[in-house]
Amino acid sequence: MTQIELEGVSKSFKGREGELEVLDGISLRVQPGEFVSILGPSGCGKSTLFSLLTGIEAADSGTLLAGGEELAAGHQPFAWMPQDDVLFPWRTVLGNVALGAEVAGGLARRDARARALELLPTFGLEAFADSRPFQLSGGMRQRAALARTVAQGHDVLLLDEPFGALDALTRTDLQLWLEQIWERERWTVVLITHDVREAVLLSDRVYVLGPRPATVRLELEIPLPRPRTLETLADPQVAALEHELLAALDVGTART
């Protein structure tokens, strides 16, 4: 059964200067346990796609199915990770992670904390349970935010540019780390990114969106063997795949 299925989804926002068309007939599919990336230029409507999935916004047309069923308002089966980490300074790292289990997972406070405590080692945060978010490095903050997302207990993770704000080294480091734990946990992941390398390194499949109003320009399988490691980056296929994605995005065809 397909986990996520979008068929001809369109969305526009009404602004002061008239209608802003953002998504134009997007169709895509995600299978259970699959890692799918959505790649697109800045401002093309990637985050909007997640707003539709999480029910924050309603689509103008098209169908959105989760597990074969129409998405119902207020009962969305996805765990969303925002583009900026949104860790709360009044909660410790443990408290922030527990928030996912408490609010979305519906656990009692104590159970939520216990669940969070179980999760911390996976995310390399066991030594920082009692730290405050502002005491963490950028990479650790993203891991904490991801832990909170996982703690929600949903089958599907929607990650909106989780590594977008990190420096290049930390980013690659976290990409390889995410690949490692994904191999073990096999969540269904939809990852938004505008980093071509990230899409190739992590995904089973990549959808490329064009500039606004976004359409699906390309759907590309990433046949690289798993587990993927630093060595994967030296695979000649990687360069070919990156090239194909960049070409679909019109990168390098000079616009003035």
């Binding site: 999480t54 924050i56 996805f78 969303w80 949104v86 709360f88 928030l99 996912g100 609010v103 979305a104």
Partner: peptide
């Protein structure tokens, strides 16, 4: 973003107030 996070997690108004808006 904090409000949206709470909404996607299914928190009602009161829970959102207590856990996020008040602090």
């Amino acid at each position: 973003a904090a409000m949206t996070l709470m909404e996607t997690m299914g928190a009602g108004w009161w829970k959102t107030w207590r856990l996020v808006r008040l602090p």
